[in-house]
Design a protein around this nucleic acid. Structure first.
Length: 323
DNA sequence: CATCAGGGCCCTG
DNA sequence: CAGGGCCCTGAT
């Protein structure tokens, strides 16, 4: 347990996203809870991945003077597998939605009173997710019924026990374990990590992945409803987690069918300038206003809000975010 | 000190 | 379909 790797520079990739592209908005999501598998500074993003059972450290930077190109330095343990880098590049294009066509989105809502100014600030931002399906399921489970602080604690203890500490480019970040790595770990052992009843979920989700109970690749590109139906079969994964999975991981820009209480308060404020608008009314409103782009639109607004919060306190928002 | 809800979900009746 | 139970923590 708790192995560590001093990552060597293995390769350098150059990615060309569709334009326009927004580097910081795409790679850093201030509304997400902090996790020890990534770090961000202006124009630089470090992220671990466990790609094909192989822990890697990635450093993303803007290539100055080269349009919107991104440099990705790949760190890890040297091994002979020549096609890994090509496959990794394709995987990163998918995970960070680098091939997205947002022209309609940008044009159609240019004059939307709320969304227009936000698009001006974040034009080219993608919905992105650095994780695999399995990794995202773990994140979704630790988010359930917990405050941010507790979610961080739970993921941290999981990383310490089963993750790989990657040292690369002057950073120390944890890479996720694979389902196979923890296939023989008992539910009781997981419980000692203070994840509570979630131990059972993690145990069963891991078993499901190991036995090929669900195929992430096959779900990519399938329609929203059938993806939702498949995911809902997973033990421990319900409507709230499905919503995050559909949007963040599978990039369904219209996956906006439920609102949690804390989100409801934010939408009430931003869209209606009121304290609390009924959830049904909000859902109907965004459906009519932003159509099939409604969750992407919402994502833009949320991230914009949380970016603002990094530089200045927003009292009503601070009150909604429990640490 | 006790009690309770927290960025759900499962299971039961 | 409504409602209780679940692990653990920090807030009150």
């Amino acid at each position: 347990m708790g192995n560590a790797i001093d990552g060597q520079l293995l390769d350098t990739l150059v990615l060309h996203p569709t334009v326009p592209f927004h580097f910081d908005g795409t790679f850093h999501k201030p509304s997400h809870f902090p996790s020890q598998d990534n770090a961000y500074e202006d124009g630089k993003y470090w992220q671990t991945v466990n790609f094909r059972g192989r822990p890697l450290g990635l450093r993303f930077t803007v290539i100055e003077g080269a349009g919107e190109a991104i440099e990705v330095r790949v760190f890890g343990e040297p091994r002979d597998s020549p096609d890994t880098m090509n496959a990794l590049e394709a995987e990163l294009r998918w995970r960070f939605d680098l091939d997205a066509d947002l022209r309609e989105f940008n044009e159609r809502f240019a004059h939307d009173r709320v969304l227009g100014p936000v698009i001006d600030r974040w034009r080219g931002m993608r919905v992105s997710c650095a994780h695999s399906l399995y990794e995202f399921l773990i994140v979704a489970v630790v988010l359930q019924n917990a405050t941010v602080r507790r979610s961080v604690q739970m993921l941290d203890s999981l990383f310490r026990s089963y993750g790989t500490l990657m040292r690369f480019d002057g950073r120390e970040l944890y890479a996720f374990w694979t389902p196979e790595d923890v296939a023989s770990v008992s539910e009781e052992e997981l419980r000692t990590l203070k994840v509570g009843y979630r131990a059972k979920f993690i145990h069963r989700l891991t078993a499901c992945m190991v036995t090929g109970g669900i195929d992430e690749d096959a779900l990519r590109g399938r329609d929203r409803q059938s993806v939702a139906t498949e995911l809902l079969k997973l033990y421990g994964i319900g409507p709230a987690s499905i919503g995050m999975l559909l949007f963040d991981l599978f990039h369904h820009y219209d996956a906006f069918d439920a609102i949690s209480p804390w989100e409801q308060k934010i939408y009430s404020r931003v869209l209606f300038d009121e304290e609390l608008v009924p959830a049904e009314q909000i859902l109907a409103h965004v459906r009519a206003r932003w159509g099939d782009w409604r969750m992407l639109a919402s994502h833009y607004i949320f991230e914009d809000l949380f970016w603002q919060r990094k530089t200045r306190s927003i009292p009503w928002l601070d009150a909604l975010i429990r640490l």
